[in-house]
Write a protein that binds this DNA or RNA. Structure first.
Ligand code: MG
Ligand code: MG
Length: 1243
DNA sequence: ATGATAGGGGAAGCAG
DNA sequence: CTGCTTCCCCTAT
């Protein structure tokens, strides 16, 4: 669950599986670039045409009238836009049905009004008279006159101030009216609940007021900077791309149009826009065009120039009917044209022009309007030709791979450079001046800047690069990779530097054209394959946001719009959109006001970077009981935990009290009526349930797909809600709410674990955020299923809405670390038979930053380990495989791609402060210098190989003296430089070995040294590592951790030394322990200070606590080890490690067998037991989890957690210090299992 | 400027 | 040499 995935099915996976199956049968469609003329193979022409029906092209006679229905104009809204130059005017773009077709239309909405709200000082509206008049007005809603008059009187001073403010900003005409409004958000100065406020309405053509106004008679101003477009969408309840109707439209004469649309109308005032539109159901067919440019680099200016352009388009895409590939990819549906130009004025190669003529004269050429391919002399004429074709096309949607950050950016720059007339036809709004394109791509991984969006207003941009990044999980998002994996197509790379070479001969130049067409076709294919348009439309309609914004991938914005609609409809004052600066200013100010007395420092929240500490605590991850499990393990998982918590506990802006001291908010009082946020989520969940039930009964494939898209959109929206609560740049940012949700989540998980272990009596071996893994010790599927059902029943009893579900049964499971495990899942195939599916989570094999060689070895080892074969066989198979790998690598029999490591650029390469140490950054910088397009920009992944340089004799130069980053190269560099060789040593020692050795940690019969030996590495180097990191130690550690949880009782610690700490002034004092803090004996702020310290809150820092605890723990170790066999060494010598925990072959590690302790070990163990007890005592003093577990209920636990918050970090640091040392000593406690009877659930 | 936090792990630099 | 910190990346949920 958690973020993108609450329902147990990862969204991305669902998505891929569903689509690949539907489209998979198209093996015959081999575009075979560059031989075949894409976008379609000749074979495709024989195929029966699909459902794409082009609209009848009757000649439309423009008589100046409008196609009104009952006096209003039906209008399918596609996009909307606001111009800084024309404040108060909103441009709506869409399609209008006219004479059996649909035409592009621009509605110019003028005379929009701005509404801002002044919240009065408390006490402004008050008194018995007001109460009386309110009651009167309530009884007789028709007669509000006296009440309003009274309100105006009471607000006289406020009104005077408001008038002055307005006058100051040049606003002379306005209406002021007292209205009732609610507030529930984060401004401390504005009281929550409903009250009278002053609403000021004035023409939006006038200037706006600044955010954050202050005054004598008001405590807050809302809506000052609200965009007029947003207010129209909210006021008219326009929910995304849908049919609306325009009343009283007047036709704008073609000569006076401000847009390039076929039709333009003028509408006065937002009230003439209605979200209701009778008679229109189906969305209109859209013109979808894919665009691809080929560029060459101008050496002096260092700019990209357009050399070729292709457009592949579908004249009528129906949004509600996702199309099968066979349907859209046919000669009847698909159209295309290309434009090519001469390079540097050089003539085209011999025979090329004849080829062009032949192409255009062909059957396909005629079908594409006679000029399928146009050869132009210059870039300028190319652009003019392209623009003319685009004008005739009038596309609604432009598709392309990275089209927003590259193709359109280049296109606009070149149009500007050549001063091409009517350049603004690329968009739909007429313009003379160019917007500044400076911002370029979005901050992260492509996307359009604001200038580009402005220029393109009216046409949607569907960028498959952005879409794929959002919906897929791939090693990189280049078209070559996506085409191979998702379209089954191979795409050859064509670097800008190789473009001039294509001009040498006519066939080569035709290759260039075909490559361009093919790229456009691939982008169109990908967009169709991913259903980008239907999905993004659904998301826009659910949230009531603009389609263009959704296509930009602005996820937080969608949720914002959804909540804005909901809260606006309920008459709430909405949180204003603030700039980063304004937000910070506000945060500082509110913090200062809240902490005027205690002077707590303001915590800097770095909003931009992912770096920095988390703002609040998230999900609970249980300490895994590591090992290999050969009996069935149950995976139970709460359905949509966070959305469910919001509903179950009625968590909303309106219900949660925000504590001023930064502690976790208390749960809202139980109430019968559901608050806004839970209601919104419930609505989404209910709608999804309905859609899913429709889906279950639907047989028609197309309709099924459509429902599935809808269902996914609903789930995505519900799941994103929590994320936006915790997102500091969101207008609905409410950390207390986010924190409360996660706190409840932790509580629920912990109490579920307790319930399962105590009441059901089963062992929980792991759990993450919303899931538990339960050991059954049975091998029979049905038996395990019954146990799962029992667990599910017991857990679900405790909640109204929350529901845990048996998500999977693992026949066999390898649990290595938190968030790192693998299993054989028992699943059902279509016929209902049980099938076994391997599942790997978090392991190196599922990461892109390990090379394929290492991952292949890891997968082999994992398959062996999970095979259920005898341990010796598994080990020998792995050893053999590693020896074989070593041989192959030495023989050079491993292909280069197996050595490629991928890493993403999370910043621009030049922005890394310490670039010299990062391989991928070094490679990226060199590629950028060489003007490579891919693997150079922020958000892209860089593939690299670690090499060594050899001299003429083939001897390594300087055996890899430099850092790793200096030895990282791109494949292309490797190919070009014969002195570079793959650094075999690095790959064996630093890639293959760690990957395999981690997997084998819990496996008997091998260790890091043995594995190293098999790889031909020096085993001696791994002995120490083997000792420190072996599975046995981990197993012991788990046993010890488990024992502390079950055997903790105060009596055992009565002989222990206290935990002495030293304060800053040198005073020594015993740390009282977390228990005393919770029971109220000591204030949290004083816990890490001497009892008699004068100043409170002057306790030790987390780092200081950690250091001192470490010292005390070391002293304890030293004390108990004095005079023992290994006096000065905390660690057991490697060769005496032979007391094996796993005396019984099939006992899972971590489950110490009760009979391991022999009498001989016993005596030695006693002193160790005392040490163990001492360290556990320290641990206990610092670990709140035990004390918390003892509390009565969740409410108390929440309260306690809140109380501990100020010292949480220090406790954590101290606890970790103890654990570190205790773990290092863990060898010695082999025998303690019996002493303490470690496991409650011994076999 | 453009949903969250928890967690493992590699590489390098620094103090001892 | 080892610990420890910092930076960076990618994953799980
Ligand atoms: Mg879940
Ligand atoms: Mg889960």
């Amino acid at each position: 669950m958690g973020y993108d995935d609450h329902g147990g099915n990862d969204y991305n996976n669902d998505y891929n599986n569903d689509n690949i199956d539907d489209y998979g049968g198209d093996a015959g469609m081999d575009t075979g670039m560059p031989d075949d003329p894409p976008p379609e193979s000749p074979r495709g022409e024989d195929r029966p045409d699909g459902e794409v029906k082009e609209e009848p092209k009757e000649e439309w006679v423009d008589d100046g009238s409008l196609p009104l229905v009952d006096g209003t104009l039906p209008f399918f809204l596609l996009d909307a836009h606001e111009e800084a130059a024309t404040p108060g005017t909103v441009y709506l773009f869409g399609k209008v049905p006219n004479g059996g077709q649909h035409q592009s239309c621009c509605a110019v909405l003028e005379g929009c009004m701005r509404c801002i709200f002044f919240v009065p000082q408390p006490g402004t509206f008050t008194g018995a008279e007001l109460t009386r008049l309110e009651a009167e007005a309530a009884a007789n809603p028709g007669a509000k006159g006296p009440l309003l008059r009274h309100l105006h009187e009471q607000a006289a001073a406020l009104k005077a101030e408001v008038r002055a403010v307005l006058a100051e900003h040049g606003i002379d005409k306005f209406v002021i009216k007292p209205v009732r409004r609610n507030y529930a958000f984060e401004l401390d100065s504005v009281p929550h609940g409903e009250q009278w406020v002053l609403k000021v309405r004035y023409s939006a053509a006038k200037p706006s007021l600044p955010n954050g106004l202050e005054g004598e008679h008001f405590v807050g101003v809302f809506g000052a900077q609200q965009s007029v477009l947003e207010s129209v969408l909210l006021k008219r309840r326009i929910m995304g791309p849908s049919w609306i109707s325009l009343s009283c439209p007047t036709r704008v004469d073609a000569s006076k149009q401000v847009s390039w649309c076929k039709l333009e109308v003028k509408v006065e005032g937002h009230k003439n826009v209605s979200s209701k539109c009778a008679g229109q159901q189906e969305p209109p067919p859209l013109i979808v065009a894919a665009l691809n440019l080929k560029t060459s680099l101008h050496p002096q200016a260092n700019t990209n120039e357009v050399v070729a352009a292709s457009v592949v388009y579908l004249p009528a895409v129906n949004l509600d009917r996702p199309l099968s590939k066979a349907a859209w990819n046919s000669s009847r549906s698909l159209r295309h044209f290309s434009v090519l130009r001469k390079l540097d004025g050089q003539p085209f190669p011999a025979g090329f022009e004849a080829k062009v003529q032949a192409v255009n004269a062909s059957e396909m050429g005629r079908r594409n309007g006679g000029t399928m391919l146009s050869a132009q002399a210059s870039e300028r004429s190319l652009l003019m030709n392209l623009l003319a074709r685009l004008r005739a096309l009038d596309a609604d949607v432009l598709v392309g791979h990275n089209i927003a950050a590259f193709d359109l950016d280049v296109l606009l720059h070149r149009l500007q450079h050549h001063k091409v007339p009517q350049w603004s036809r690329v968009g739909r709004l007429r313009r003379s001046t160019f917007p500044s394109l400076g911002g370029g791509g979005g901050s992260f991984g492509g996307g359009a800047g604001p200038g580009l969006m402005t220029a393109m207003a009216g046409r949607l941009i569907c960028d498959t690069y952005l879409g794929a990044r959002e919906l897929l999980h791939e090693v990189d998002y280049t078209m070559a990779t996506l085409a191979r994996i998702h379209l089954g197509q191979t795409r050859s790379d064509l670097a800008a530097a190789d473009v001039p070479g294509k001009y040498e001969a006519a066939p080569k130049l035709m290759e260039l054209v075909q490559h361009t067409e093919s790229d456009a076709w691939l982008a169109l294919s990908l967009a169709m394959h991913l259903n980008l348009l239907p999905l993004s439309r659904q998301l826009s309609c659910l949230s009531g946001s603009l389609w263009s914004r959704t296509l930009q991938g602005q996820r937080a914005q969608r949720i914002e719009m959804l909540l804005l609609h909901e809260f606006y409809a309920r008459k709430f004052l909405l949180p204003d959109k603030l700039s980063g600066r304004e937000r910070e200013r506000l945060a500082r100010r509110q913090h200062a006001a809240a902490h005027a007395d205690d002077g707590e420092a303001f915590e800097e929240v770095k909003a931009g970077g992912k770096k920095g500490k988390a703002q609040y605590a998230g999900g609970l991850v249980l300490e895994p009981k590591k090992g290999l499990y050969n009996s069935i393990v149950l995976l139970l998982d709460f359905n949509s935990l966070y959305p469910s918590i919001i509903q179950e506990y009625n968590i909303c802006f309106t219900t949660v009290r925000r504590p001023k001291d930064g502690s976790i908010a208390p749960l809202p009082e139980p109430s019968h009526d559901l608050a806004v946020l839970p209601k919104v989520i419930r609505g989404l969940v209910q709608r999804r349930r309905e859609v899913k039930s429709l889906l279950a009964n639907e047989r028609d494939g197309v309709r099924r797909q459509q429902l599935d898209i809808r269902q996914q959109a609903l789930k995505l929206t519900a799941n994103s809600m929590y994320g936006c609560l915790g997102f500091s740049a969101s207008r609905f940012f409410a950390r207390p709410l986010a924190e409360l949700v996660t706190a409840q989540g932790r509580d629920i998980l912990q109490s579920t674990v307790d319930l399962v272990q105590s009441s059901v009596g089963l062992e929980v071996i792991y759990g993450d955020t919303d899931s538990i893994m339960v050991r059954t010790d049975v091998a029979k599927e049905e038996e395990a299923r019954a146990m799962g059902a029992r667990v599910k029943r017991e857990v679900n009893k405790r909640y109204k809405l929350l529901e845990i579900e048996l998500d999977a049964m693992y026949k066999c499971m390898l649990l290595l670390k938190k968030k790192k495990y693998a299993a054989i899942k028992l699943d059902r195939d279509a016929a209902g038979r049980t099938v076994e599916v391997k599942e790997a989570k978090g392991l190196d094999m599922v990461r892109r930053d390990w090379c394929a060689l290492a991952k292949d070895c890891g997968n082999y080892a994992l398959d062996e380990i999970l095979s259920g074969r005898p341990c010796e066989d598994v080990v020998s198979a792995i050893h053999a495989r590693l020896r074989q790998v070593r041989e192959k690598v030495d023989a050079g029999a491993v292909t280069l791609d197996k050595f490629v490591i991928h890493k993403q650029l999370t910043k621009r390469p030049e922005d890394y402060p310490d670039a010299k140490n990062q391989p991928h950054v070094q490679v990226a910088l060199r590629r950028a210098a060489a003007h490579k397009r891919e693997g150079t920009k922020q958000g892209e992944t860089v593939p690299y190989i670690i090499c060594i340089e050899v001299d003429e004799a083939g001897q390594p130069k300087d055996g890899g003296a430099g850092g790793l980053a200096e030895r990282a190269y791109h494949r292309e560099e490797l190919a070009a430089n014969p002195a570079l060789r793959v650094d075999v040593q690095y790959y064996l020692a630093n890639q293959v070995h760690p990957v395999v050795s981690r997997l084998c940690a819990p496996i008997e019969g091998t260790d890091a040294a043995r594995l190293a030996d098999c790889l031909g590495l020096d085993p001696a180097k791994y002995h120490a590592a083997a000792a420190a990191g072996s599975g046995m130690r981990d197993a012991l550690e788990d046993a010890l951790i488990a024992s502390t949880a079950t055997l903790d009782c105060d009596a055992r610690y009565k002989d222990c030394d206290p935990l002495w700490l030293t304060s800053a002034d040198g005073t020594r004092f015993p740390f009282v322990g977390v228990q005393d803090v919770l029971s109220g004996g000591v204030a949290p702020g004083d816990a890490f200070a001497p009892p008699d310290a004068a100043a409170t809150g002057s306790g030790l820092s987390a780092a200081q606590v950690a250091n001192q605890v470490r010292l005390r723990a070391r002293e304890a170790v030293a004390k108990y080890y004095e005079g023992s066999l290994v006096s000065d060494d905390e660690l057991m010598p490697v060769n005496t490690r032979n007391v094996c925990l796993r005396a019984q072959g099939d006992a899972a590690p971590g489950m110490a067998s009760p009979n391991v302790a022999s009498a001989g070990h016993m005596a030695a163990a006693m002193s160790e037991a005392a040490l163990y007890t001492q360290l556990s005592h320290f641990h206990r003093l610092l670990d709140p989890s035990l004390a918390l577990a003892r509390l009565k209920d969740d409410t108390e636990r929440l309260e306690a957690t809140r109380r501990l918050a100020p010292i949480r970090e220090a406790l954590e640091a101290g606890r970790k210090a103890v654990e570190q040392l205790r773990n290092r000593c863990a060898y010695r406690w082999v025998s303690l299992g019996s002493l303490y009877n470690v496991t409650a659930t011994g076999a």
